[in-house]
Simulated assay, not measured.
Amino acid sequence: MQLGKGVEWCTHICGMLALVPTGKGLSAEALADFFEVPSAYLAKQMQLLRRAGIVESVRGKGGGYRLARGVDAITLLDIVQAIEGPSPAFRCTEIRQNGPCGLKRKDCKAPCEIASAFAEAEEVYRDALRAKTLAAINAEAAANGSPEHFIEVAQWVQRQVS
């Protein structure tokens, strides 16, 4: 399974948006510049996050994007599903019914064992993403990073929203 770049970008951005003061926002352009990613592509990703209720857009001076809910209420699964959609990664096409020895549809009484195995694995994966909040990710980043770096990032955010 491979997730698109947008998932990585948006997870980092949501982590940064946690630093945005109430009533303020960060522009998609400022976020794109900060992470050195294409602004047009990022703008599309931000719209997906907005539609999913993860971020909200603020108009006017100090406008841009901010989190729509608290970091403890946003999971990695929320971000993945906002960007990639809710569909499962594996889609069974029932090829066991194809070919010279294919099973007859009426003989396929139980779900395909391969599809079942992938569905079970994906549920474990989704449960793990569902259990990891943005708050937990930010706490881990703070514990593993240098205080100077976090101060630098917080100061950058403050300059952007002032």
Rank of each mutant, 00 (worst) to 15 (best):
Q45Y: 08
C101E: 15
Y41I: 14
P111S: 07
I151K: 10
D78Q: 05
I137V: 15
G60S: 02
A73Q: 10
Q2E: 09
G64F: 00
E36F: 14
A115E: 14
M1Q: 11
K24M: 04
A121L: 15
C10A: 06
K109P: 03
A68P: 05
E152R: 15
L26R: 00
R69K: 07
A139I: 02
G70K: 04
K104T: 10
L134Y: 02
G99R: 12
R91H: 14
P100N: 06
E148P: 04
Q2Y: 15
G4V: 05
G6F: 03
P147A: 02
A32G: 09
E36I: 08
G23Q: 03
P88W: 06
E120D: 11
E120R: 13
V124W: 11
V20E: 01
R66M: 01
A30Y: 07
E148T: 12
Q2I: 15
I114E: 09
R50H: 14
E122W: 06
T75F: 02
E56T: 08
R96K: 08
L26P: 00
C108S: 11
L67G: 00
C112Y: 05
A43M: 07
A135W: 06
E56D: 04
C14G: 03
I83H: 01
A143Y: 04
Q81S: 05
A141S: 12
S146M: 04
A136T: 13
Q97V: 12
Q97E: 08
E56Q: 11
C14W: 00
F34D: 11
G15A: 02
V161C: 04
A117F: 09
P147L: 04
S162C: 09
K132V: 07
I151V: 13
D33A: 12
I151E: 12
I137Q: 10
A119S: 14
